[in-house]
């Protein structure tokens, strides 16, 4: 069982601010973290490996310092990691990102065939949830999104059974392997890293692949390969600030009730 997990380095969005003057993004103050959904993707892969044997490989596209999230995945129990890093990748939208990642996955699976690919439900910065489906289409394999439980894995018949989260319900679905899952956080509880994994991560150096290594079509990457472009970035409109009611408790409440009566 060879599982590839896609992990993204993201800024901690609670720390991201927008400069009100220039209307540009200030990420400088935001620490880089592993996309929270992706830690659960790694955890699930490691659990499958523990039960069925095999290997977990993580892959990330990002700047050179994204090796840190790969090392983090090693502490979580991943065996191997690849970083796809090249200036040609910069500015990729989800179509280009999924192209580059699918080329990376194809590269890895030429060495060791892949049975299962796991992504997070979405990344907390771009927030699109589009990269998983994009990769699955490019590889021509089934996609099972919003998975919150793996109900069975039948290696002999090359089949997986999962629960997909829907509004107020879940769907039980089976798919042929290889396939791609995107996972919700509730699929598992993260565990503490073990000491041997932590020690291994310190020394671990992920393999770095460039555009040339992938031997892929450069016109499908980066800004050139991206049909969408961000034309404007601005701070979300704030309400003008509320009317703060004044008075003693009883009066406050009567005023509020008056307002409520008016607006219903």
């Amino acid at each position: 069982m060879h599982i590839i997990v896609c992990v993204k380095q993201v800024p901690d969005t609670t720390e991201v601010k927008i400069d009100p003057v220039t209307n540009t993004l200030d990420r400088s103050s935001a620490p880089a973290i592993i996309n929270p959904y992706d830690s659960h993707a790694v955890e699930e892969a490691v659990r499958i490996k523990e039960e069925h044997g095999g290997k977990v490989t993580v892959i990330s596209m990002g700047p050179p310092n994204a090796v840190d999230v790969i090392k983090r995945c090693i502490t979580l129990g991943a065996d191997d990691g690849y970083l796809l890093s090249d200036r040609a990748f910069a500015g990729s939208d989800t179509l280009a990102t999924s192209y580059i990642l699918s080329q990376g996955i194809a590269y890895i699976s030429r060495q060791e065939p892949v049975d299962l690919i796991i992504c997070g439900k979405q990344a907390i910065d771009g927030d699109t949830a589009q990269v998983g489906p994009g990769i699955a289409r490019r590889l021509g394999i089934p996609q099972l999104t919003y998975v919150n439980h793996i109900a069975g894995l039948d290696l002999a018949n090359k089949e997986i059974k999962v629960h997909r989260k829907l509004d107020e319900a879940y769907e039980v679905v089976v798919a042929k392997l290889p396939c791609l899952l995107t996972v919700e956080k509730e699929i598992n509880e993260l565990r503490y890293s073990t000491l041997p994994n932590m020690l291994r991560a310190v020394r671990y150096q992920p393999k770095v692949l460039t555009a040339a290594d992938l031997q892929a079509d450069i016109s499908m990457m980066g800004l050139k390969g991206s049909p969408t472009s961000v034309s404007k970035i601005f701070a979300p409109s704030q309400r003008s600030g509320g009317e703060i009611l004044k008075g003693q408790d009883q009066q406050l409440v009567s005023q509020l009730v008056e307002k409520l009566v008016q607006c219903i």
Binding site: Q130, Q143, T145, D167
Partner: peptide, 23 residues
């Protein structure tokens, strides 16, 4: 932008090789 809509849109946009704005 429901689970179904996002699932379908992501797949369709990739096959059509066009841009998709999320949510």
């Amino acid at each position: 932008a429901t689970t179904t809509g996002r699932d379908l849109a992501g797949a369709v946009a990739t096959d059509l090789a066009t841009g998709l704005t999320a949510d």
